[in-house]
Design a protein around this nucleic acid. Structure first.
Lengths: 196, 196, 196, 196
DNA sequence: CATGAATGAGTTTTCATTCAT
DNA sequence: TATGAATGAAAACTCATTCAT
């Protein structure tokens, strides 16, 4: 029998549980997300689950926190890969939207759960992390670019909401629009304000 | 004891149940939405409830169907009140967005439940009716106006999604932006495409 | 199939549950007193139990309330059977103690549970009903008789406690003392104060 | 690292555990008395606890045995301090009751748990040690004094029970009677028998 | 010996649904 | 048809106890 350091053992167990939670969430949906089912899926006893998470919602929160961290990482990675963001360039919005799409496309299953099944009230923080990420990114561009509006913060808010929600819906609803066409429209939408 | 025609009695009962369901949904949230509670609220026995609805989710579906019909009606009513929609007028988007806001503002409580608490999977049809309504309206404008795009249907889809989601989030999140400013931004967003 | 009026049906069920609770309490003790076990014993589903009692402790409370009412009734009945209580008569204490013994002897099983197993904190009211009963009865005698003390209320309290506890311990511990001898001692104890 | 003889280490561990058990019992009550909590409080692993105690109830028993030994010691100490017990002196009962009060007052917290929360069945021996102690003491006095009764052992039993229970209730219920008044009544009660 | 992670049967309670009346 | 008492499977969570290290 292999020697496994304690630390490693518990880490492995936590990982197994979180992984199982994610699986159950995506496979069965939030209404069927039971602590017992997660324990089953993780091949772990219900008691063990409660040694690492104070209650069911802590489990969900953890899954969501990880998911939002992943999104952030992926957005950052995509942007880095695209090269430096020139804040004056109207292509910026496109790059950001592109990065965002890349990030959320990678786990559409969980995206659907987060967006459509989780009771928002209970998980607002993690749920809005996407928003925050997009807001941060666009804020830089918007303030730097020549875009003007009577109420700049209103404009920023509207653009963030629009880009975020349209991107999510495109991934979830598969409306038969090409990725390129979508990006075209999104940058037109944000950039077009210039003419207003 | 007055004789009440069966048909009428049943109709009244169904109405009472649906009304109670809506009340419970808005007052207590979806997590506390139990068939027993609805029966209580309707002053009806649980057994009766099951005489008209095969299961709990049918009840929710019915509430949502009615709600989306109301939204449609209100949008139509608002537009009618504003006067005829001139399809060439860039003010059209503003009018539509205005009508949409008016419609959803009138029952923000239920809007929140529908948007943030209901498991979307089970009620996709009703939930998407808003989109369909807006899509129909904008489709007319977009096709008639000079707005051109490489992919007109993509453009329409994006605008619909953007307007709808931004409007809903504005109502639910109360982001401290005036109604007028919001409408300004929304029409700029849609209209701005012209320059693209 | 016999027609049973609703009212009668639920009454019967409540009775079955309370009876089962009492049985389980006496047979298995408080630590094994489970809602599921009570439901089993009553041949009723756990759900039914909760239709009549808000929680486990309400069940216990009900059993205890009934038990203390029974005790009261039996004490009253015994005293009535003995004939009128002459408040000046030193035999009064004996009569009261006798009545008390008769009352608690009739359900020594439950007496043991109440006295030795129930967490006092949670059921103080019902648990002290014996005390109250004894206090009331003796209060009349003590105030009317020539018994004097520097602090009459202290004397009353001491006698009540002594009679009550000694009687209970005699029933529960079966110390090999005859009923008559016990009554002799108790009245000597209370009456003897006269000489102090 | 200092070498600690095994024996000594185990003794220290046992002590720590028992001490922790007592603390938890008094601080949190019997319903919250869990082996894990005791282990925590003792800064010891649950596994270690089970190396010295076969199960939870053995732990409780040990705490109670120690407690009753302490009571005995304190009673003895109080009596010793008061001076020699003159077996003919009617003040003897007073001295004994006084000693008893002193003993149980010193740890009213644990007294309450023992008297009101612990399932008596499981710990009868320890719980009755108080009685035994008092019985022994009073037995000497009663047999030596001129007190006569038809059944002397019955009389002894009654007095022991009365003194013990009244003393305990006085400590736990705080009935607003002075210590002196209580002692007066107790000795009157026991001594008054003389007149019977 | 000591550890403490892991266990899993068991606890209280809920609620969608049924069915005899 | 309407009732509502009854159901019972299942949920979240606990805790005395074990055993590999």
């Amino acid at each position: 029998m292999r020697r496994v350091p304690q630390q490693a053992r518990s880490r492995a167990m936590v990982e197994r549980i979180i992984e199982a939670a994610r699986t159950v969430l995506v496979r069965d949906g939030y209404e069927s997300f039971t602590t017992n089912r997660v324990a089953d899926e993780a091949a772990v006893s219900p008691g063990s689950l409660y040694q690492y998470f104070p209650d069911k919602s802590a489990l969900v929160t953890e899954v969501m926190d990880r998911w939002s961290a992943e999104i952030s990482d992926r957005v950052a990675a995509s942007l880095a890969a695209t090269g430096p963001v020139d804040v004056k360039d109207p292509g910026t919005v496109r790059a950001i939207a592109d990065a965002l799409l890349t990030a959320i496309e990678s786990d559409a299953g969980l995206l659907r759960i987060v967006w459509e099944e989780l009771p928002a009230v209970r998980h607002r923080a993690a749920q809005h992390s996407l928003e925050n990420r997009v807001r941060e990114l666009l804020a830089v561009y918007l303030s730097a670019s020549g875009v003007t509006a009577r109420d700049p913060s209103a404009r920023a808010w509207v653009i963030v909401m629009a880009v975020e929600n349209v991107a999510v819906r495109w991934v979830l609803d598969q409306p038969g629009i090409s990725r390129e066409a979508l990006l075209d429209e999104l940058s037109a939408m944000a950039g077009g304000f210039g003419a207003s």
